[in-house]
């Protein structure tokens, strides 16, 4: 017979008040989680160095007597590394979600925030903001670096020129959009390898491959593919693109709503 059985039962313990699960708390938590992994630092550093480095390298090696001209041409040299670098960003975005599933830390996360959706939102906001700030800086540094390295006066562009600033921020918007898409994708598939393969295969490569198919309708559809809708934003002269700037934003919004809608429904429905 244990002692407790003979004595009165103690009154039920009442937890001390004061602590609350909040949206701000979830944001701070995701911020802590993001920066407490070594892989975050490594991948982000790689992404920035790669983008800036490749842009500078290519700008420095452009010969000046090729008749290359125009703001879009100049920007394409400066931002030559951005599409590669967006892969780093997307992969890290995927890992912030799938890493939790493969290691099991998702169980801690979701028992602290059992409504679940707030966690996905906080991940998207924190990572989106980090990528936005980092790439805003990267884009401008690379732009000026590239301008200093490009010899040809025909490729000389100023920030004040029509559409240049918009195109530079277009690069930032595109990267943030892809990062957000990657997070939703990770949340839907939950598996690192699967999500990365899907991202590279279906979002990045498939639309490019599709253009060589012989059917006309494919070419009509391809600009609306989730990996392509941001392409207008990075152009200084958008007169040739299928989607206008407004349409481009609209379609980015549509794809994010679709991706996060599906991710949210699955997150609520499935067992952790």
């Amino acid at each position: 017979m244990t002692a407790a059985a003979m004595t009165e039962r103690p009154a039920a313990y009442v937890p001390k008040g004061g602590y609350r699960l909040t949206g701000a708390g979830l944001l701070r938590s995701e911020w802590t989680k993001l920066w407490s992994l070594r892989s975050t630092w490594i991948v982000l550093l790689c992404a920035v160095v790669f983008a800036a480095g490749l842009g500078a390298l290519i700008s420095a090696s452009v010969p000046s007597d090729q008749g290359l001209a125009g703001a879009d041409m100049a920007l394409s040299f400066a931002m030559a590394g951005v599409s590669m670098s967006s892969v780093f960003i997307a992969v890290l975005g995927i890992l912030t979600v799938t890493g939790e599933y493969t290691t099991g830390s998702i169980r801690s996360t979701m028992s602290a925030a059992p409504k679940r959706l707030g966690v996905l939102a906080a991940k998207a906001v924190v990572y989106g903001a980090v990528v936005a700030v980092l790439f805003s800086a990267m884009v401008f540094v690379t732009f000026f670096l590239s301008q200093a390295l490009l010899d040809d006066p025909a490729l000389s562009v100023s920030l004040g020129d029509d559409g240049v600033l918009r195109a530079l921020f277009g690069y930032v918007a595109m990267i943030v959009y892809l990062a957000l898409l990657a997070i939703a994708l990770g949340s839907i598939l939950r598996n690192s390898a699967g999500s990365i393969a899907f991202y590279i295969g279906v979002i990045m490569i498939l639309p490019q491959l599709a253009t060589i198919l012989p059917w006309d309708w494919v070419a009509d559809v391809v600009p609306y593919a989730p990996g392509n809708v941001a392409n207008t934003l990075i152009l200084v002269d958008t007169s040739q693109s299928t989607l206008g700037v407004g349409e481009s934003w609209l379609w980015m919004g549509i794809w994010l709503v679709v991706a996060y809608g599906l991710a949210g429904v699955l997150l609520k429905r499935r067992d952790v």
Partner: peptide
């Protein structure tokens, strides 16, 4: 709750794991 299977990211320190959870509630 202490659940059966490991519920921590292997790449994170014990302190940061606890801190991240604490922050959700302002602990």
């Amino acid at each position: 709750a202490l659940l059966e299977a490991k519920s921590v990211h292997a790449g994170r320190s014990a302190y940061k794991h606890l801190l991240a959870l604490a922050r959700t509630h302002g602990i």
